[in-house]
Structure formats: C-alpha cells, structure tokens
Design a protein around this nucleic acid. Sequence first.
DNA 1: CTCCTTTGGTACGATTTCGTACTATATAAT
DNA 2: ATTATATAGTACGAAATCGTACCAAAGGAG
Lengths: 159, 159
Amino acid sequence: MPDTKNAIYFEVFNEIGIIEQLSRTLLEARLPHGLIAPHFAVLNHLIRLGDGRALIDIARAFQVPKTTMTHTIKCLETNGLVAVRPNPRDGRSKLVWLTSAGRALRAKAIADLYPDFERLAAGFKVDRLQDILPVLKDLRAFLDEDRNGPHDKTVLQAE
Amino acid sequence: MPDTKNAIYFEVFNEIGIIEQLSRTLLEARLPHGLIAPHFAVLNHLIRLGDGRALIDIARAFQVPKTTMTHTIKCLETNGLVAVRPNPRDGRSKLVWLTSAGRALRAKAIADLYPDFERLAAGFKVDRLQDILPVLKDLRAFLDEDRNGPHDKTVLQAE
DNA sequence: CTCCTTTGGTACGATTTCGTACTATATAAT
DNA sequence: ATTATATAGTACGAAATCGTACCAAAGGAG
C-alpha cells in the first residue's frame, strides 16, 4: 500500500513543519529585539560543536546558501556576539568565534524559555517526547546523509 | 530534574527544526520554478480544510502576519492557482478559492515526491514514523492551543 | 612554473517576510 | 442614530533569504 505509506511521510513532515513554526515563534518571543531564530541557531551551533568554524561549514550545516550565512554572521558580528578572523591555514576562509557576550546571550535565551517549557510540561508529558527523540534523531541523520548521497535525478531533470 | 527535562524539550525542537529545513529543501526541489514551500502549504491547506476561506483565517492558521499572507496569496493568484473573491457576508474580507490548476499542481507536487519517499522508505522503516505521528499531532495541537491560551506574560513584559 | 579547475567569500539585485501605519467595513455601546 | 471600538485588508519600508556573477586563494595537471 504505497499510498498509505506516502501519506504517513507526508503527514509527518507536515506536522513537523507546523511545530517548527510554532516553536520558532515561542523562541523569538524570548530573544532580544532584532535577534531572530537563525541568529540564535548559529550561536547554539557554535556552542554545541565548538567555535572557530569556517563560514562555509556553518552554511552547509544549516543547508543555506553561503550568501545567507555571510549576512547572518555579519549581523551577529555587528552585535558583538561573534568575532570573525581570517583562517591562518586558508587565505580564502574566515573562522567564526564566539564572544563572551555571544555565550551569555545564548544562555540567557535558554533560561528565558523555562516558563514556556514549564507550561509545556504541565500539559504534555515529557516522556512522550523522550520516546520520539531517538526517531527524530535518526530521521534527521538519514535526511542529512541523503542530501549528499545518490539522489533520484530523474524527476529533477524532467522538471 | 528540570534541567534534564528542559534539555529534552530543547533537543526535540532543535531536531524538528533541522528536519523541517531538510524536508523543505526536498519539497522545493520538486516544485515548479518560482514556487516555494509556503505557496504549496497554502494550496495544501485549502485542499485539506476546504477552500473559500478568508485571507485572515489562512494567515492565522500559519501563524504569519496578514501582510505576509496577502503577498503569498497574490503570488498564487498571479499564477492562476487560486481565485480571490469578495466575501458576500463581510465587505472587509476576501475569500480564497482553489482553481483547477491549483488542485492539479498540488497533486502533481505530491506525486513528484514519490521518488523521495521511496528513497526514505528504503533506508527508514515507515513503522517508526507511524509510531511518532500521534505524538507529533498532539504536540502540534498543544502548541496551537497554547498560543491562544493563558500565556506566562511575566518574562514577556520584563523583556 | 604555468594553466586550469575548484573552493571560500562578497557584491548586487530579486523575492519573501514582517512591522507600522492607514483605509474601509463591521460590531458594540449608549 | 451616533459614536467608539474592533477587524480585514493593503501600502510602504526594513530586514532576511537566495540566485547569479565575480574575485581571491588553493589544489592539480602538464
């Protein structure tokens, strides 16, 4: 029953899209004025995976064009949240480092989300989310792997 | 252990954000040139919940400003995918109807996604997604409810 | 070394998203 | 009926995202 199967995929991605939208709105309500989700996402990325990364690597991690990341980084730099320095081992690339202000802002944003999480905990058992987390991680890993792997180009070419 | 609990929420939303990004890229690769995910999302919304809806209701459903929806609808209208008519029961609002071209394009986009779903099915058991679907639906429903319900305004006002 | 290709980053313009201000219509209050 | 308030949509400008073109540096082939 491929129709039923595809309907499930479609529905899962649809729900995920809506949840992303709603959770992003929650996050941005807790960020200082002028700072939006992508800015926070970069700070979070640099904390989680370590800073001193090249702009192009960050762009690839977020699946956005490098021009977009140039703009995002410049905004973070203007606000003193990251420092951009040339890569001593590659004259083309620039490395992005977190400032203490950047680390502090990321920590404060997460702390400010506590009331939202408390509200969520009151109406939604955390166990259920813990149960689906491994599946989400695997799905993300698969899609992440897939976009570099052998795509089906047939329909793309027919486009 | 509130820290552990919040970490799970945070991680779930983070994974969902990445999956949304990756799945959106997959979708847009299958859409005709110039049409992007939000356009498709509106067509899909009108199919699922029925057309003849007011612009403001669609905007609220997607949690976007009405100015954004005005722009999106105008783009769909320009491409002949929806028809906008005045609401006979309210001189202020306009109702959005699907055209046959709009229905056809939505159907074709879903059909064109089949190769992607097949690839996904090969590497990822559909059962696992089916299992998490109810949780995702409930989470979406909770967040949807929550944004209209009694928020914790304390931090918002302190902002 | 020289030529060629690839890669990292930016400049620029087009499209999308969004906040503010404004108009027109509907609803409520009296 | 008149006034006030709320709502639906748009006009406009700012910021974000993205595609294309371009430049500088790195890597490879000969």
